[in-house]
Design a binder for these strands. Sequence first.
DNA 1: CGCTTCGTACGATAAGCATCGTAGTACGGG
DNA 2: CCCGTACTACGATGCTTATCGTACGAAGCG
Lengths: 119, 119
Amino acid sequence: MTTAAPAPSSRDLPHPAREEIRLEGVLHALSDPVRLRIVRELADEEVRLSCSHFDLPVTKSTTTHHFRVLRESGVIRQTYEGTAKMNGLRRDDLDDLFPGLLDCLLTAAARQADRHRGA
Amino acid sequence: MTTAAPAPSSRDLPHPAREEIRLEGVLHALSDPVRLRIVRELADEEVRLSCSHFDLPVTKSTTTHHFRVLRESGVIRQTYEGTAKMNGLRRDDLDDLFPGLLDCLLTAAARQADRHRGA
DNA sequence: CGCTTCGTACGATAAGCATCGTAGTACGGG
DNA sequence: CCCGTACTACGATGCTTATCGTACGAAGCG
């Protein structure tokens, strides 16, 4: 009854399994300013956001590229919803693999942002 | 008076000041497997180690390169002692800039190592 | 002084990556 | 069925980087 996951609208996106996520990959993904910014916004909002919600200083193709890097490194989960592509942090998986790391990184990023904002 | 820093044996190495250390740079530095390994060993030993102490799967020139990346990103401090170059983590600076981050990263790296060792 | 040990500098090379533009596909609405 | 919106795919480009080899410099030892 009710196969929990319905036909995913035919368009599927490849995500690494939880145990395939590598720390080096996560760190590399977050070492780019644009991607770090995306992750910070995702963490702030606590809801899934569409790609077009972000106002980034790069073109749309570059944005697509950054989102893919984040997905393939295991940092975010992406799913289609109509024409929009929704993005959410993989908090559960990351917290399980590396407890506390994500919050630590977000705190560090926030501190640096504050400091450079002349706080 | 007494200029606290005596003549440093003539050979000096450029380090970024504490406030110049960037989170993105640190993450990028640690996103390389070889460099992550170096940092883990440095954290384990709690003493300053010479470059030649490490048995890395790369040549000596590449090793020099990796140590420089770590130094220029602010992760380690390097000083000459005779013919040897000693390396130590910049724990004080990193803990001040990003409290808890270093330990979090080291714990995450250790967890991943254990997991992949079939623990 | 010569020799060894430790590390550097420089050049080469190949791979990776951030960026863009253009052309195209999927979905939803009139 | 046509159109707009959202995102992708592909190719190009120029920069960064990980790697190596070889040749060199600096410190210590006999």
